[in-house]
Design a protein around this nucleic acid. Structure first.
Length: 427
RNA sequence: GGAAGAGUGGCAGAGCUGGUUUAAUGCACCGGUCUUGAAAACCGGCGUGGGUGAUACCACCGGGGGUUCGAAUCCCUCCUCUUCCGCCA
């Protein structure tokens, strides 16, 4: 959620920035509507405050009068204050509805893109920030797509998943299951080596949490919901981990806050069908290790690049061909100010698969969740939040199977062997 | 799931027979005096948000609602914690 103060003070800059997202004129004009509504809010607030001050004073007087036994005067004042009550009540209701309205409007505005975000409306407009410099591995004849490899080596059963739950819930078996566990531990250890504090959060969260990180109301349809308890299954560990700091005030000396967590992630993926969902490409449940950072606004972009470096290091160790994209305004998520996507090459499918997304949200999430810090000058300010997948498992597994397949079997990258306990998957 | 008790400012802890306490006091923290320096002592400051040029002022004592001229204090409801019982990885 954008800060209303910034909307007031830097209206033109915000409008210019939002244009990069190709949002409608209607949405842009919302900014003026919000500022106007906020003016009304201020004057209404002032009016109400004065009434309250007045009746507070009189109530105090009544107390004094009763004490000195002047009941007649007291009763007279009582009537006066009682008359104010109705006005106060109405004004209070009015103020509440103005505030609700402002929130409702404010929540519709996406984050202002960082100045480095390229213009564009679709995936093709994303900037290739770092391309894969070596030749993209060509497949030898007889090479298979990952869903066939998974079957051939008996690593994953999509069919059993359908029996147990439905499509998009694969069952990992044997070395397939072991590979999953190895990757999770590998990612967690690498994050720990980089100074991240490990968190194991709940995978069900309440409405407040989902709202604070921006999943509600924007992505409600994307989440599984437990109606009886009013809980949501998390679509990413970002939600519970960032919410650890909801409604808190840190000290500037607390930065950097570095957290990492592994969780399963649940996404309904309503409306996405077709070839893209084949195999491990798009699942309802998958595993992910997520890194989350809270930063001082002065350092958040350095931090973002550091996180990009961390993810790149992981992909290098897994020996996967990848590229990094700087997302264009039209392709970037609602909450983000700047996002780098990582894509690994799916050799058999002949296309790039997104395996990580690293973003700086600046104060957008912090504003919703009231995550502040006391700066060196003593003033409280909103912190910056960032997060990134490091990494998302299913697609990593998919591209590992495809890229590392040989006639002898699937070769495990050296860095991962201590975790799998085997260096090849063969029949 | 059942019963009882409790939720106050960073922490501790008053207030809870409703009205000069619209949050005392202690600790912690910050600034100052004193000191060669430090400790101690003393003086001052010390919650969040709204509002203002700055004050004034307003809201917040787990969340929401109600009674009253007036509520941290009374009532209703929800949440959480503690203890006991039941159940159980």
């Amino acid at each position: 959620m954008l800060e209303i103060g910034i909307l007031r003070e830097q209206k033109d800059r915000v409008k210019e920035g939002l244009k990069k997202r190709n949002i409608s004129e209607d949405l842009l004009s919302l900014i003026d509507t919000i500022v106007e509504a906020d003016d009304t809010r201020k004057s209404t607030q002032t009016e109400l405050d004065q009434l309250l001050a007045d009746s507070n004073l009189k109530a105090k007087e009544i107390g004094g009068l009763i004490k000195t036994g002047e009941h007649q005067k007291a009763n007279q004042l009582k009537e006066e204050v009682a008359a104010l009550k109705e006005t106060v009540k109405n004004l209070d209701l009015k103020l509440k509805s103005i505030k609700d309205n402002i929130d409702e409007l404010l929540i519709q505005l996406p984050n202002v893109p960082h100045e480095s975000v390229p213009n564009g409306s679709k995936a093709e407009d994303n900037e290739v920030y770092k391309s894969w410099e070596k030749p993209i591995p060509a497949l030898w004849s007889g090479a298979l797509p990952h869903w066939e490899l998974a079957e051939k080596y008996n690593l994953i059963s999509f069919k059993d998943g359908v029996t147990l739950t439905g499509s998009g819930f694969p069952v990992y078996k044997g070395k397939g299951a072991r590979l999953q566990r190895a990757l999770i531990n590998f990612f967690l250890d690498e994050a720990a080596n980089a100074g991240y504090h490990e968190i194991q959060p709940p995978i069900l969260v309440n409405k407040e949490s989902a709202k604070a990180t921006g999943q509600l109301p924007d992505k409600e349809a994307q989440m599984y919901y437990c109606e009886k308890d009013d809980f949501y299954l998390i679509p990413t560990a970002e939600v519970p981990i960032t919410n650890l700091y909801r409604d808190t005030i840190l000290s500037h000396t607390d930065f950097p806050v570095k957290m990492v967590g592994y969780t399963p992630c649940f996404r309904r993926e309503a409306g996405s069908y077709g070839a893209d969902v084949k195999g491990l490409n798009r699942l309802h449940q998958f595993d992910k290790v997520e890194i989350v950072r809270l930063e001082h606004p002065d350092h958040s972009y350095d931090t973002l690049m550091e996180m990009v470096g961390h993810v790149a290091m992981l992909l290098n160790k897994l020996e996967l061909p990848y590229r990094i994209l700087r997302l264009c305004g039209g392709d970037m998520g609602f909450n983000s100010a700047l996002t780098f996507d990582f894509e690994t090459w799916s050799a058999a499918q002949g296309r790039w698969l997104e395996v990580s997304s690293v973003s700086n949200f600046e104060t957008f999430q912090a504003n919703r969740m009231k995550l502040r810090f006391r700066d060196s000058d003593g003033k409280t300010r909103l912190a910056h939040t960032l997060n990134g997948s490091a990494l998302a498992l299913a697609r990593i597994v998919a591209t590992m199977l495809e890229n590392h397949q040989t006639e002898q079997g699937i070769v495990i990258p050296k860095a991962l062997v201590p975790y799998t306990g085997f260096d090849i998957i063969s029949i």
